[in-house]
Structure formats: structure tokens, C-alpha cells
Simulated assay, not measured.
Amino acid sequence: MNDDGGPGRDETPQERADRLWTDMLQEVRVCQTGAQILFGFLIGVAFTPRFAALPAFDTNLYTATVVLGAVATGALVAPVAFHRLFAGHDMKPELIHVAGRLIATGLVTLALTIAAALLLLLRTATGNPTASWIISAAVLLWFTTTWLVLPQVVLRRTAARQAAARGRGEVGGDPR
């Protein structure tokens, strides 16, 4: 074996690709199921008696939400189709690259779908458009913070800590 697999690992590039693909599958399973369930519920809304009474804004918001849900579901399922097409062609690194972008797209559109669905639900349930917008925006901000900002902060802090440890001549640095 060689150490082309990355820092702290003794794996070949193929073993690394296999590990990364397995990790990606586990990650996407979590959000894929939620996206599919949400999309299924959204589809059913149009067939309820109350749907016909929605104002034009809410009907348009519903349409946009369903489209976002379809895009999220498609992006989160797409890595499976890529895997089927790439299987046996020794293209796992390419698969990992494309799947990573599709999963990122799926997560962004899933967050937008949830925020839009929440906006529609709160507008309908509370009749308070201002509070509905504020709460939905706060939820979207929460997703942005926990899904994007916080991981970037952790990456930067870890990189800085590792650079400082290398500068002091430490081998592994403090894992905390």
C-alpha cells in the first residue's frame, strides 16, 4: 500500500475512492429520504379542498416550492444514476467529484424547499404574512449557519491549529 490516500491514512487511491463513495452514500441517504417524503407531501397539497381557495401569491409559492422539491429530489437521487452508468469503468474519482456537486446542489435546494414550504404553511396557518416571512428567513439562516458557515469555521480553525503544530515541529498536533 502507499499513502496516496490522504493524511493519516494508509490506503491506495482506489481504496480512498471506495471509502469516499461509501461515506457519500451514507450522507445522501439521510437527506434523500427527507427530500422524497417532503416532495410527496407537497404533491398532495394541490388535491386538497383548501388549495383552490389559496390566493395567487400562495399558489405561485406552492408551485415554486414543488419545483424546488423536485430539483432537490432529482439532485439527491442523481448520484445513484451516475454510479450505475460509471460502474465497471474505473471512474470512481470522477463519480465522487460529480456526486459531491450534485449532493451540494440537492442540499441547497432542499433548504430552499423547506423554507418555502414553511413560508406557505405559516402564511396559511397563521394568516400573518410578516411573521411567516421572518420565521422562514430565520430557518433558512439557521440552515445556512449550520450547513455552511459552521463547517467552514471548523475547517479554518483545524487548518490553523495544524499549521501551528507543524510550525512547532509536532507530528500530529492536538486533536482537540
Score class of each variant (00 low, 15 high):
residue 88 G to Y: 13
residue 132 S to W: 06
residue 35 A to C: 12
residue 9 R to H: 07
residue 145 T to E: 03
residue 47 F to G: 10
residue 53 A to C: 06
residue 146 T to K: 08
residue 132 S to C: 04
residue 96 I to F: 07
residue 62 Y to A: 03
residue 22 T to H: 15
residue 77 V to Y: 07
residue 43 I to H: 09
residue 64 A to H: 12
residue 14 Q to G: 08
residue 117 A to P: 02
residue 98 V to A: 07
residue 84 R to F: 10
residue 75 A to Y: 03
residue 79 P to W: 04
residue 151 P to L: 03
residue 89 H to S: 15
residue 145 T to I: 12
residue 37 I to G: 15
residue 132 S to P: 00
residue 97 H to T: 11
residue 97 H to Q: 15
residue 29 R to H: 15
residue 16 R to T: 10
residue 53 A to H: 08
residue 81 A to R: 15
residue 141 L to N: 00
residue 13 P to S: 07
residue 14 Q to A: 05
residue 137 A to Y: 05
residue 30 V to E: 10
residue 96 I to H: 07
residue 103 I to E: 03
residue 82 F to S: 14
residue 135 I to L: 04
residue 103 I to D: 04
residue 117 A to I: 05
residue 129 P to Q: 09
residue 115 A to D: 00
residue 63 T to P: 04
residue 121 L to E: 01
residue 43 I to D: 06
residue 73 T to A: 14
residue 9 R to Y: 02
residue 41 F to V: 13
residue 17 A to K: 03
residue 17 A to M: 03
residue 80 V to N: 10
residue 86 F to R: 08
residue 86 F to Q: 04
residue 141 L to K: 00
residue 38 L to H: 04
residue 143 F to N: 01
residue 81 A to P: 03
residue 17 A to Y: 00
residue 112 L to K: 04
residue 34 G to P: 00
residue 139 V to A: 13
residue 130 T to F: 14
residue 65 T to N: 05
residue 42 L to Q: 07
residue 17 A to C: 06
residue 146 T to L: 07
residue 107 L to Y: 14
residue 121 L to W: 08
residue 80 V to E: 10
residue 97 H to A: 07
residue 110 L to G: 07
residue 114 I to F: 09
residue 82 F to A: 10
residue 151 P to Y: 07
residue 35 A to V: 02
residue 143 F to P: 00
residue 132 S to E: 07
residue 55 P to Y: 13
residue 81 A to N: 13
residue 70 A to Q: 05
residue 137 A to D: 04
residue 137 A to C: 11
residue 115 A to M: 06
residue 115 A to N: 03
residue 20 L to Y: 00
residue 59 T to Q: 12
residue 53 A to F: 14
residue 43 I to Y: 15
residue 114 I to T: 02
residue 20 L to Q: 09
residue 98 V to D: 04
residue 144 T to I: 05
residue 118 L to N: 08
residue 68 L to G: 03
residue 59 T to G: 15
residue 46 A to V: 11
residue 148 L to R: 05
residue 39 F to K: 00
residue 127 G to V: 14
residue 101 R to S: 14
residue 142 W to K: 02
residue 109 T to H: 05
residue 45 V to W: 13
residue 97 H to R: 11
residue 36 Q to N: 08
residue 28 V to E: 05
residue 100 G to A: 15
residue 17 A to L: 02
residue 70 A to S: 11
residue 21 W to I: 04
residue 79 P to I: 11
residue 45 V to Q: 05
residue 123 R to D: 05
residue 14 Q to D: 13
residue 77 V to D: 01
residue 38 L to S: 03
residue 75 A to T: 05
residue 63 T to M: 12
residue 10 D to G: 06
residue 59 T to C: 10
residue 75 A to D: 00
residue 26 Q to D: 15
residue 129 P to R: 12
residue 29 R to T: 09
residue 120 L to V: 06
residue 132 S to Q: 08
residue 78 A to N: 10
residue 66 V to C: 02
residue 100 G to K: 03
residue 10 D to R: 11
residue 9 R to C: 03
residue 117 A to M: 05
residue 98 V to T: 14
residue 104 A to N: 14
residue 31 C to Q: 15
residue 98 V to I: 09
residue 94 E to A: 13
residue 48 T to V: 14
residue 66 V to E: 14
residue 40 G to W: 08
residue 30 V to K: 02
residue 152 Q to W: 03
residue 57 F to G: 09
residue 86 F to W: 10
residue 77 V to S: 13
residue 21 W to R: 06
residue 100 G to W: 12
residue 32 Q to A: 09
